[in-house]
Every structure is written in C-alpha cells, then in structure tokens.
Amino acid sequence: MSASTRFAENAGLNESPTFPLRVVDGLSLPPDYRKALRPGEEWNDLNGFPRQLPRYFYEIPSWDSAMKVELATHFLLWEFIQVDVREAAPLRTFPRYVPCAITLLAVCLERFREAVGTLVHISANGGYRSPSHRFSKNATPHAWGTAANIYRIGDTYLDNRSAIERFSLIARETLPGIWTRPYGTPTGYAEDHLHLDLGYVLSVPRDVKS
C-alpha cells in the first residue's frame, strides 16, 4: 500500500482518492488554532478593502507527510509551509493547516517552472503563512495560500532588478491573471525576491457539506 493511499484511508477521503490530505472546517478547530487562522473572518487589505479569509484547510499530520505529498509534479507540500519563529506558535507544530487553494498555486508554479525550464525555490515565510504571522500586517494572499515568494530560480538569485523583472515578465506571460510585485524598495514593491500571487482566492472542496 502506498503512503498516499494509507493517508487517504486514514483521513476517510474524499472525491479524489489519490489526494491524501483531510479537509477540515477551520471553524471546528480548537480555539488556539481558530485564533491564529481566523477562518472565514474578514481582514482588510492595504487599501482598506475587507477580504474574507479561507475557512477550509487541508490538515497536514506530520512533516513526514508534508515531505511526501505532491501538490504538483515538481512541488511537494513542505515547500509551501516553511515558516520561521514569527509564525503563531500553534501553527509551527503538527498537525498544521493550509488553505485548500494551495493546490491552485502549486499548479501555477508548475506551469511557471515549465516556462523557466529549471528549479523554482520558494523562500522561507514565502508560501503559506497565517494572518497571525508577524509579517502579515494587512490581508496578504500568503494567508490564502495563493502567493509565493521566489528567491532563486535555477542558479539565479532574484535579488536584483534585472533578474526580478525578467522572471516577473515570464510569470505574467505564462500565467493569465497572475500578479507580480514590481521591483523596488517602497511598501508594495520587492527587491530581494519575486512575489507572485493569484489574489484572494477561496477554495471550497466539493465534499464540504456546509
């Protein structure tokens, strides 16, 4: 029996028998998780517009499973959940939770990887991070699981205008609807990584009853 099948049976899944993670309603989680994840709550973006946070999450039982679960051919789940000491304490231990839209981001990054023809490295704190993460000041798509900070592509570090703008252009040409942060130092710009995101996408899996 493969590891993924075993996870699926344990989780009692689902529409997709090959996807091993259990879907959980964030509102049913213990209080310390709800406080950190704020499922379904509104959160204002930089311009003051309210955005609704994700309510449904995949439950990741262990680091071992995060190392095994493929979200796309070249992207494993662990690459999206590397957070440092600035993340809320309950969300640094397992089980951990990621918004269901993380799978959409992975598909986009896979397409991006095909376009650039080499490895795409997501930085620490640069995949999913919760609204309670110390970097999360306003509603950021990172808290929707739909944003990635990429610090290296192949052997190229994205820490200069030329590299960031080159790969930003490839991302926008390859992925319709993708948004990339412009190069620069002010708030809303980036000069040591490429930020790309799909916006505030909410994903509600079909088997969710409520």
Partner: peptide, 9 residues
C-alpha cells in the same frame, strides 16, 4: 532550535 528566515534585507 527555533528557525529564522535568512533574508538579506
């Protein structure tokens, strides 16, 4: 063993 994001900014 707390982990810290290494970022040069």
């Amino acid at each position: 063993h707390s982990r810290v994001h290494v970022r040069n900014r």
